[in-house]
Design a protein around this nucleic acid. Structure first.
Length: 266
DNA sequence: TGTGATGTTGAATG
DNA sequence: GCATTCAACATCAC
């Protein structure tokens, strides 16, 4: 499920549940999502450690351990966290559980195993190697506009590019395009400076609103696009019609007749 | 029952 | 180098 605001919520859950706690043991049910560890090495790396901090860049969350190591959580499409006590049944699709000293458990779940759990020694170097862009909540307008300069890629592809800004996924990209009334397949070289600034503002406002108000894919403002109109053929604002196309290889919803296509090349 | 899915990566192509 | 498309990953829900 998760894009930046949802991952932010996961970070809050880590903060509320295991931050500052000592990990008694880790039980691994399925090591597939551990990208650089086996069930044994992963469990051994965490057992006895105390968690001292968390951080987040885009859709990546990092749990900081007291020995200087880090655990990366990337939730893929279906990652989820469940906090429960020893008497409760483990949640469905749990892949591993972190057992705390007091017996509480934090279960990591994902049905489709697209999650990426990675043990990291040097976080700074790791982020550099990954070529991860600045977090979409943190990046400043000037830098964002600078990244667009000279590019001819389509707006949606740019928004989804995690090496430019980190954190925007398919749904939020559509939302940003909708709120700026720009067709997602518009190319950057055809957009005015004012339009690019509007894109930044929409990104900023949408993400902040989601982080402040929406813990998951629920409870979004009802005037948001995907809440209201994300259904093919629906009648959108100003008599527009919701269309479904592929942009940047991803299923894309937009309002034909409301969002304008800007392009120089076609 | 077949198809597509909120994400990432790497290969292939223009 | 840049941009785009596709397949793969693994499994579930519709």
């Amino acid at each position: 499920m998760p894009e930046l605001p949802e991952v932010h919520t996961f970070q809050q859950i880590l903060n509320k549940t295991i931050l500052g706690q000592r990990i008694q043991q880790v039980v691994v049910h399925d090591a597939k999502i551990l990208r650089n560890a086996t069930a044994e090495t992963f469990a051994a790396a965490l057992a006895g450690r105390t968690t001292v901090d968390t951080s987040r860049i885009g859709k990546y969350t990092f749990l900081h351990l007291d020995n200087g190591q880090f655990v990366q959580f990337h939730f893929g499409m279906t990652g989820d966290l469940h906090f429960y006590n020893r008497d409760e049944e483990p949640p469905r699709f749990e892949r591993f559980t972190v057992v705390l000293n007091d017996g509480m458990r934090l279960g990591y779940c994902c049905s489709r195993k697209f999650s990426r759990i990675v043990l990291i020694d040097d976080l700074e170097q790791y982020v550099l190697d990954k070529n991860l862009g600045e977090d979409a909540l943190v990046i400043k307008a000037q830098k964002f506009l600078g990244l667009m300069e000279g590019k001819r890629t389509r707006l949606k592809a740019f928004l989804l590019d995690q090496s430019k800004t980190a954190g925007i996924g398919n749904l939020y990209a559509d939302e940003i395009c909708y709120q700026t009334k720009i067709h997602p397949a518009s190319t950057l070289d055809a957009l005015s400076r004012e339009q690019k600034q509007a894109v930044f503002k929409a990104m900023h406002d949408i993400l902040h609103e989601a982080v402040n108000n929406a813990p998951s894919y629920q409870d979004y403002p009802e005037n948001w696009f995907w809440e209201k109109w994300r259904h093919e053929g629906e009648v959108g604002p100003e008599g527009s019609v919701v269309k479904v196309i592929k942009v940047a290889g991803r299923t894309t919803y937009y309002c034909e007749g409301y969002q304008t296509l800007f392009t120089n090349t076609k």
